[in-house]
């Protein structure tokens, strides 16, 4: 944006999920966002990161009325070919926040925990942790994993942020995750996330 122009968010648009993955190289973000801007799309929330040498894009875009997912994919086709990216665009159902329905805001009424989990790599680490958390009513808000170490001694590192609804026992859930992973020889540390509003 320039000349102080601001984006006008109108209701007459669609949201789409764009994913793109390819071997990392400089210029991927510039090329993708250039093609999207030309099409009149706005970038909203995104995460983009290098995962084992591949640049992975997960992006919510606002698409002008009348432009379909296929049209967005077509507009990105030359970029995808040039940079050897696998690109997919899918329409998203718009979620309208309704304060009277769904879980409350744990920043006020529930608890958020940060988990740090690491140990020798072993099948099922993520699933064990996630299953115990789901059973406790926990909602995964953010998750990131890294497989590091050497090929003969691989190490798994997992970080999770989990929201618990009001009334649930977040501390007990954290203990349950710790116990479930201890069976695999994997450590789990959890602490409540406190926000200081200044």
């Amino acid at each position: 944006m320039h000349n102080g122009a601001v984006v006008n968010r109108s209701a007459d648009v669609a949201h789409m999920a764009l994913t793109a993955v390819g071997v990392d190289q400089p210029g991927i973000v510039a090329a993708l966002t250039g093609a999207l801007e030309e099409l009149g799309c706005n970038l909203e929330d995104s995460t983009m990161s290098i995962l084992r040498g591949h640049f992975a894009v997960l992006l919510v875009i606002e698409v002008p009325a009348g432009v379909g997912a296929e049209a967005v994919e077509s507009a990105l086709a030359s970029v995808a070919t040039a940079l050897d990216l696998v690109v997919s665009v899918r329409p998203m159902r718009d979620v309208h926040p309704d304060p009277d329905r769904g879980p409350a805001d744990p920043a006020r009424s529930g608890e958020v925990y940060a988990f740090s989990i690491h140990g020798a790599d072993h099948p099922g680490i993520v699933h064990r942790a996630a299953r115990v958390l789901a059973e406790a009513g926990g909602n995964v808000l953010d998750l990131s994993t890294r497989l590091v170490g050497s090929s003969d001694r691989p190490v798994y590192v997992l970080h999770l942020t989990v929201g618990f609804p009001p009334g649930s026992d977040a501390g007990a859930a954290a203990d349950a995750v710790r116990d479930a992973l201890a069976e695999l020889g994997v450590q789990s540390h959890a602490h409540p996330v406190e926000i200081d509003v200044l």
């Binding site: 926040p97 805001d105 744990p106 920043a107 958020v112 909602n139 953010d142 942020t161 929201g163």
Partner: peptide
């Protein structure tokens, strides 16, 4: 507060993209 006087927000002090989080985690 002193940062505010220099035109700086906490957003300008975080270590990187993974140090910024939604405040309201449920919708």
């Amino acid at each position: 507060e002193v940062d505010h006087l220099d035109g700086l927000l906490f957003l300008d002090r975080v270590a990187g993209p993974h140090a910024v989080f939604p405040r309201k985690v449920y919708r």
